[in-house]
Design a protein around this nucleic acid. Structure first.
Length: 810
DNA sequence: TATGATATCCTTTTT
DNA sequence: GGATATCATA
């Protein structure tokens, strides 16, 4: 055994070590929360490489780009440059690449577009419309999710239509044509040269099923297959893994059945539960020691999860300190709850001399963040919201991508429809509709329809205008295609932004929205630039062939599979984190607050309708609790705003499922009644009345007796009262376009990029047409330009590109 | 065709 | 309540 191997195994407990060392056969690693799962997975891969396994023979699949990046980095520290050759990434990105390499086999173009959910839904919508079906009966969302489910279960349109059960179900739901819509949807995707997210898995399966030589090639290549978060795999992913590992059976899956929380999007907990049946020779390793949390937290979490019937046997334990009990608060309203939680959080962080970033507030639904944000802002506590909102949500970004997509793949009708009248150039819905019809009758894409039409018929007088406008658009796209060949990525992006009229459109408006739109376009161009630099660095490092010039297709491909979730925290990390329980999976914080622990919220109403649903909610609660390292605080409110009006709520059943020895509550969690009966609802009284009465009671109590207890120090119910303490307005947490490409260049830039002087100096005062006056904080060189970080007086900190931003020195 | 007014939908989320 | 989509109107 080499010394490096020893080093890899150093500090692993026996179970972990066994899971690392025995890499030759099928393995199931059951990794409880906080049991060092990532460490084991990365160590195993590093160990394999150290033992002589070729890194390119290893395929490691994750669910998020972030997880993949983190693993790669950790393996890199163990085995160095060899880690680069591991095929590692998300299911979607790994198979997208494989699909591009084999696109011809499936009848797709190599540069196929990846449709994001919005494109898919729009396509579904137009199909429903074309067929003259009412979108009351055929709700696009419902139709799409049914198509998505079918794909994730590997049911092709043909199989769907032949499946009596599915067809019957649709008939019962008044949607007899669903199968036909599905078939048409697939036909159109193919015609447009597009795959949706689900296709990346479905088409991979088709490829591996129908092309034995391709399958054999990848089986040979991927001799070792490792899968993270196996409990979250859906059927399509499951079959891909089976196919690939058929030959060698060297498959290793890691997961925790107790943390399976994604069934609503097709994840099958059965996959992990029946792994041993699928691979009878599998070795099972159980990582049961929790290194993250106190004993109290681990034991409490165990006591809850024991209420689930479907579980794999394991007993998680912690050898850490016993720790504090789990505290449970009850508030009257959601606002008061927010106040209590934030106040407690603030006091605790200050007492402990901790960083804000060591605390996180978790909730079941995103809209619960509102109340918390208000209080945090009011108290001047820095926070960040971890939202899954992708940058596609920004119109201007989508528009830019629309142009680029259309240029790369002119058959992309969804992109065509998006940009033909953006910014408005007088081509209205009727014209677009007409083009769609022509395309349909000729069985070609919309672009092909106008591309050829333009030269043929300038007919009547009224249409002349329209034809002229469309011709201009066609000319624009054609000339942009030429630019794409002729110039570098950044310049091309600039060209698209400028020639399309998007820049001018936003520049003429003097609204803050327009300013932020321009900002986002700048960020997009930034990312092009950084991608370019990264590729060049790779070429210099010899990891990339000289002739493989960085291409816009490649950039787009990676962009489409990335989300904000992958973005690193931008400015200043010392902030309280707010997020849903779902997004907290895999993370850990010293202090965890779980708010809204109420029936019908957590567990959610619809989940409670079924046993499986309820058990998944319980696992979700388990995930939430086990995020805490030192201290967990739960809270609920007696009433909260729901869809515009106050509603009563009862404490969550999960609270009473925690073994009472681990908790410390300020009320009786088993009682259904609220605390002071003077404030209980009386007959005929509305929630608002009760609230008002209680409000008065509390207010009087507060002003007469200065009784401490846990009075929220904020002014939640001191209406019109003067605000105490600092309340500096927090600059709105602006979603920034920050794909991982940037991070990679930043972290891996060994040799610094040389560049010309930019004409600005740090500390210099400047003025921007939209953001006003500010001071340059930092200057970061880029290959051909500079990034300026400027603190504006009225707009806060912004990152601008020197050449692009119209700055004047003061 | 662009704009303001009303209907509609409200778990969770990666890719 | 509130954001977004669709609709009626000038």
């Amino acid at each position: 055994m080499t010394t490096t191997s020893d080093k890899i195994l150093e500090g692993l407990n026996p179970a972990q070590r066994a899971a690392v060392v025995n890499y030759t056969g099928p393995s199931l690693i059951i990794a409880g929360a906080g049991s060092g799962k990532t460490r084991v997975l990365t160590s195993r891969i590093a160990y394999m490489i150290e033992q002589g396994v070729a890194p390119y023979n290893i395929l490691a699949l994750t669910f998020t780009n972030k997880a993949a990046a983190e693993m790669r980095e950790r393996i890199h520290t163990m085995v160095g440059e060899r880690s680069r050759q591991i095929r590692m990434g998300t299911f979607h990105s790994v198979f997208a690449r494989i699909l591009r390499e084999n696109a011809d086999v499936l009848g797709f173009p190599k540069e196929f577009t990846i449709y994001e959910t919005n494109d898919s839904k729009n396509l579904v919508k137009s199909i429903i419309k074309e067929r003259g079906l009412s979108d009351d009966k055929y709700k696009p969302n419902v139709v799409f999710s049914r198509i998505s489910n079918a794909k994730n279960s590997l049911i092709t349109p043909g199989a769907y239509l032949a499946n009596a059960a599915l067809v019957g179900e649709d008939r019962q739901r008044q949607m007899p044509e669903l199968g036909t819509i599905y078939a048409e949807y697939c036909r159109r995707c193919k015609q447009n040269g597009a795959m949706d997210f689900d296709d990346l898995l479905l088409q991979t399966n088709i490829l591996l099923r129908d092309a034995p030589d391709v399958l054999a090639r990848y089986q040979e290549l991927f001799q070792y297959v490792l899968v993270d978060e196996y409990q979250d795999t859906n059927y399509a992913q499951y079959i891909i893994i089976r196919r690939l590992s058929q030959l060698h059976s060297r498959v290793c899956v890691v997961g925790d059945d107790a943390q399976s929380i994604y069934s609503f999007r097709g994840a099958k907990i059965e996959n992990i539960l029946s792994f041993q049946r699928d691979y009878p020779t599998a070795q099972v390793y159980k990582l049961e020691q929790n290194y993250r949390s106190t004993q109290t937290i681990v034991d409490a979490a165990n006591s809850v999860i024991e209420h689930n019937s479907r579980r794999m046997k394991k007993r998680c334990f912690s050898e850490g300190e016993r720790g504090e009990k789990i505290r449970i608060f009850k508030a009257y309203t959601d606002r008061e709850e927010a106040d209590m939680v934030v106040t407690d959080l603030r006091d605790r962080v200050r007492e402990g001399g901790d960083e804000w970033s060591e605390a996180a507030i978790l909730y079941r639904t995103n809209n619960q963040s509102q109340a918390l944000e208000d209080v945090l802002r009011r108290k001047g506590i820095p926070y960040r919201i971890y939202k899954g909102n992708s940058f596609y949500d920004h119109k201007e970004v989508r528009d830019m991508l629309g142009y680029i997509r259309l240029i790369i793949n002119p058959r992309d009708d969804e992109a065509f429809k998006r940009v033909i009248n953006t910014p408005a150039r007088g081509i209205g819905d009727t014209t677009v509709e007409r083009i769609a019809q022509i395309a349909k009758s000729r069985n070609c894409s919309m672009w092909e329809a106008v591309d050829t039409l333009v030269e043929t018929t300038p007919t009547d007088a009224v249409e002349k205008q329209i034809v002229r406008k469309v011709t201009e658009f066609v000319a624009l796209i054609r000339s942009l295609s030429l630019s794409r060949e002729a110039m570098g990525l950044y310049d091309f992006g600039m060209e698209v932004a400028g020639r399309s009229g998007l820049l001018a459109f936003y520049r003429t408006q003097n609204t803050p929205e327009a300013a932020s739109a321009l900002d986002n376009i700048e960020e997009l161009l930034n990312s092009l630039q950084l991608f370019n630099e990264q590729c060049e660095a790779e070429i210099r490092a010899g990891e990339r062939e000289e002739f493989e010039k960085p291409s816009i297709e490649e950039w787009l491909g990676s962009i489409m599979l990335m989300t904000d979730m992958d973005a690193d925290d931008e400015d200043g990390n010392n902030k309280v984190t707010l997020m849903t329980v779902h997004s907290a999976k895999g993370l850990e914080y010293k202090y965890i607050y779980i708010v809204g622990c109420e029936e019908n919220l957590f567990p959610s109403q619809q989940a409670m309708e079924s046993m499986e649903g309820l058990e998944e909610e319980r696992r979700l609660f388990y995930v939430a609790l086990t995020r805490a390292k030192r201290r967990a605080t739960l809270s609920c409110a007696e009433m909260r705003f729901k869809w515009g009006n106050m509603e009563f709520s009862r404490p969550s059943r999960f609270l009473s499922e925690i073994d009472s020895q681990y908790i410390e509550a300020d009320f009786d969690i088993h009682s259904q009644r609220s605390r002071p009966n003077t404030t209980a609802a009386k007959d005929g009284e509305t929630a608002i009345d009760v609230l008002r009465r209680r409000f008065d009671v509390r207010y009087q109590q507060k002003s007469t007796s200065s009784q401490g207890g846990q009075n929220p120090s904020g002014s939640a119910y001191r209406l019109g009262g003067s605000e105490r303490g600092s309340s500096q307005p927090q600059p709105k947490p602006q979603p920034t376009f920050n794909p991982a490409t940037m991070r990679r260049i930043e972290t891996s830039a060994s040799g610094h990029v040389t560049s010309a002087p930019c004409g600005f100096a740090e500390g210099e005062r400047v003025e921007h047409p939209r953001f006003g006056r500010g001071t340059i904080l930092r200057i970061e060189p880029m290959a051909t330009d500079h990034k300026l970080v400027i603190a504006f007086e009225d707009f806060g900190e912004k990152t601008l590109i020197a050449r692009l931003a119209k700055l004047t020195k003061l």
